[in-house]
Structure formats: C-alpha cells, structure tokens
C-alpha cells in the first residue's frame, strides 16, 4: 500500500493550513499545495477569486514525479538535490520548492505576480513547514478485519465484472 509519507492531521494539519493561507495572501498566488514525495496532496489552499483548479491529484503526481526525476539528475551530477523548480509559461508560473526531504510546496500563479516576491515568501514558509513536518510520525498501521478480503473481492466483482 502506498501511504502518504507523512500523517498530517490534527494540530500539525491546522498549522500547515494556516501557513499556506498566509502565504497565499502575502504572495497573491492562485493555488498553493503541499505535496509529499509520493504525490499525495497533504494540504491545499486556493485564493477566493481563483477559478476551479485543475485535477489536483494529477498535478501532485506530476510534481512529485518531476521532482523525483530532477533529484535523479542532481544525483548524477553529484549534487545532493536541486532545491527549486520554476516553470514559466505565457500566462502563468509553476513554482516548486523542497520542504525538507519529505515534501514539496507548489505554487501556481499568474504572470502578473512577481516571481521574486513569491520566492522570498515561499522560502520563509518552507522553513516553518519543515519545522512542523520533522516532528510528524509515521501513520499507524491499519488493522484489517477478517472480512476485508471478501468485501474487497465483491467490490472488485462490481467494478470489473
């Protein structure tokens, strides 16, 4: 089973949400996501005025895969990591920065938003987030009931005939 590498809930979750909210406000970006290295969305905030976001689980998978590929490149070049990725289009920008070894912060914003401002604020937030995440423990294992297999099998029959 692939599980998010971080069990973000309770207090830690609330704190992360707050920091992402603050970042959203101070930078003026559209969307702001915290994604783990496996491609799970841990937390997500969007500006009130922003249009409906694209499929976020796809965004998260691609951001994480991209980061994995970039990390492999860094490795080959003898670097521990490349800390940030910027993808600039005509209308908007995707900015990704590592939050420690466990997560990635992803911001999506219009080209009217200055990149410098985004970078400065994101770097600050990244430190705060890394601090929260480092104290988070693994998810406790799920205890499966005896009927789990049978129930899952009948759902599989429904889904796949």
């Amino acid at each position: 089973m692939i599980e998010p590498s971080l069990a973000l809930y309770g207090d830690a979750f609330d704190q992360v949400e707050k920091h992402l909210g603050d970042l959203l406000e101070s930078t003026g970006v559209r969307y702001c996501l915290l994604v783990d290295r496996k491609g799970f969305v841990l937390s997500h905030k969007e500006a009130l005025w922003a249009p409906r976001p694209p499929a976020l689980d796809s965004v998260a998978t691609l951001v994480a895969s991209n980061a994995a590929a970039t990390a492999a490149l860094a490795n080959m070049l003898g670097e521990r990591t490349f800390s940030e990725q910027i993808h600039q289009g005509e209308q908007g920008t995707l900015y990704v920065e590592s939050v420690g070894d466990m997560a990635l912060i992803t911001l999506i914003f219009d080209s009217s938003v200055p990149l410098g401002r985004v970078k400065v604020h994101t770097k600050k937030t990244t430190l705060l987030l890394a601090d929260i995440l480092k104290d988070i423990k693994d998810v406790p294992a799920i205890e499966f009931d005896d009927d789990f297999g049978a129930n899952a099998a009948s759902l599989l029959d429904d889904l796949l005939g």
Partner: peptide, 15 residues
C-alpha cells in the same frame, strides 16, 4: 482529491 483526512483513512494501492 487525495487530501489525507486521518479520521477517514484511505487505502492506496500502486499497480
């Protein structure tokens, strides 16, 4: 969207 809500655990299998 796969935001993790700890109270409602998800099982994710990679095939």
């Amino acid at each position: 969207m796969s935001t993790i809500n700890f109270a409602a655990r998800e099982i994710n299998c990679k095939i």
